[in-house]
Amino acid sequence: MFAEKPTLKGERVTLCPVRPEHAEGLFELASDPEVRRLTGSRARFDLENLRTWYATRAGHADRLDLAITVDGEFVGEVVLNELDTDNLSCNLRIALIGPRAFGRGYGSEAIGLVLDHAFRTTPLHRVRLEVFGFNERARHVYEKAGFVVEGVERDALLWDGEWHDVVVMAILRPEWQARTGTLA
């Protein structure tokens, strides 16, 4: 379903297929303590493994990995993964590189671009995501994009000795169509 790896252009951001040259930006993103907390990521990565990872993404038709760039500079990634072709659904994951990318609208624009692509060019019916209860900034962005809270997984993340909920959200094709006035 995601065999084509497009470049999507917005007003401020460009989403392009991830390539090995984006690995340094991903390494910075994955190493930032605040980004790690916001994503619940405990994994440690090295630059060569990330280069290999990004070099292999183009060969996966079951996912779409896009670098978020501003004026050619990597500021994050947005990914459609966990494709369920039987139920026409997938997961959305997004991460920005940190304070220099937070609060500038890059995430909102990237989400809008990737949803537009997903619902216009694929038969997807549902895109879901998870966000930690403490990440109000991200939850606001998701709600603004049309995602609806579907449930809460209580105490699903133990981080620095504290339990946190995971909020499950999704947007359905008809909701996206109503928001955008699109008949896809």
Rank of each mutant, 00 (worst) to 15 (best):
N135K: 02
E153C: 07
F74C: 02
V167D: 00
S108T: 15
S108V: 05
T122N: 14
E73H: 05
D165T: 01
E24I: 07
L183G: 07
L115K: 04
N81V: 00
R154D: 04
A67C: 09
A145R: 06
G161Y: 10
G76Y: 06
G105Y: 03
L124F: 10
A145W: 04
L47P: 00
L183Q: 15
V141C: 11
N135P: 02
R179N: 04
V79F: 03
T182V: 08
A61Q: 05
L115I: 08
N91F: 12
G59F: 11
T52G: 10
D84C: 10
G146M: 05
D165V: 08
N91P: 01
K5I: 10
Y54D: 04
G40E: 06
R120K: 11
D71R: 11
A178L: 12
G59W: 07
E21F: 15
V18C: 12
R128C: 10
E162I: 03
D62V: 10
R179P: 02
G103M: 05
T121R: 10
L129A: 09
R120M: 11
A145V: 07
I111L: 13
V168H: 09
R104N: 14
A30C: 12
L50N: 04
G10T: 07
A30P: 01
G10S: 10
T7W: 02
S89P: 00
F147R: 03
I171Y: 06
V13Q: 02
F74P: 00
R100C: 09
R93C: 06
L96W: 03
N91A: 12
D86Y: 06
R12W: 08
A156F: 02
K9T: 15
R51A: 09
T39M: 14
V75R: 03
